[in-house]
């Protein structure tokens, strides 16, 4: 709890959290103004899908930076060394710090999207269960990229390093991962499609998008071909959950094992 409180107070003073929240608010309001003329029934779904597609341009990079800089700040201010020499192990420090960062980042976004329901109610019929699925997808997205940010902050020794690694990771998930899969797509057969499926759903952007669209009932899996049936060998919810577990676990383990105490600049 101390960590969360400390993180909250630090975030209040810094501009990063407010800038990120500001961007999310601006984008969501613009999307709403753009969708307000749509039909009462379909409008909600068009808005949610378009909003998600817009937010995936921002949330990964924002979460990567905020997670990384929050850890690096502990190094810069030498509070990390003090904490680690006194009562904390690296593992427990990173665990508590991750929890604190995740809570402080997710809570304001969650609150904003509750407030967002008010204008939404004026324009559309809102199936609340579907709205919560949208929030679940968004929070899943934030969890993964914030934890990757923690990993970057933990292994980096300078702000420049953080900036470089964050941009590389963002670029990888945003472009390179799918680009590599597109390049081997013509070689996918019924025999190796499951392997391809694992690689496809390793990208959190694809796994979370598929989870959202299928759980909203937009993307149907009826009358699939044999190839597609083999590709979807787990449900989209399972792919989403496993993706979350994999990236949260891997980035946390990486942050603990490759942790560097010192930072300069």
């Amino acid at each position: 709890m101390n960590y969360i409180w400390k993180e909250w107070k630090e975030s209040l003073r810094s501009k990063g959290l407010w800038l990120s929240l500001g961007i999310i608010i601006i984008v969501s309001l613009l999307m709403l103004s753009r969708s307000s003329g749509l039909g009462v029934d379909q409008g909600f779904y068009i808005l949610v899908v378009n909003l998600f597609e817009s937010l995936i341009y921002f949330i990964p990079i924002l979460c990567l930076f905020l997670g990384a800089f929050s850890i690096f700040q502990e190094k810069e201010q030498k509070t990390l060394v003090m904490l680690l020499t006194r009562q904390e192990s690296t593992l427990s420090f990173l665990f508590k710090k991750s929890l604190a960062i995740q809570s402080v980042l997710i809570a304001p976004v969650f609150i904003w999207f509750f407030i967002y329901l008010i204008p939404l109610k004026f324009f559309f019929a809102i199936p609340f269960s579907h709205y919560f699925l949208f929030l679940a997808a968004l929070i899943g997205f934030m969890l993964v990229f914030t934890q990757l940010g923690v990993f970057i902050g933990s292994i980096s020794r300078s702000r420049m390093q953080i900036t470089g690694i964050a941009i590389v990771i963002w670029f990888y998930f945003f472009f390179l991962h799918d680009f590599a899969l597109l390049s081997v797509l013509s070689n996918v057969t019924h025999d190796n499609v499951q392997l391809f499926s694992i690689a496809y759903f390793l990208n959190p952007i694809q796994a979370i998008r598929m989870f959202l669209e299928s759980s909203l009932g937009l993307y149907s899996f009826g009358n699939m071909s044999r190839l597609l049936e083999s590709f979807m060998w787990l449900s989209p919810t399972m792919f989403f959950t496993l993706n979350l577990i994999f990236w949260l676990g891997l980035s946390f383990a990486g942050a603990v094992m490759l942790h560097r105490k010192e930072g300069f600049e």
Binding site: F175, H177, D178, F179, L182, L185, S186, V188, Q206
Partner: peptide, 22 residues
């Protein structure tokens, strides 16, 4: 067009930002 003709899984990538780069 060639990928779409030959491989039905291509449709899964149409929303990816990588399509523009490709």
């Amino acid at each position: 067009y060639e990928l779409i003709e030959d491989q039905e899984l291509t449709y899964l990538f149409l929303k990816s930002p990588a399509i523009t780069v490709y």
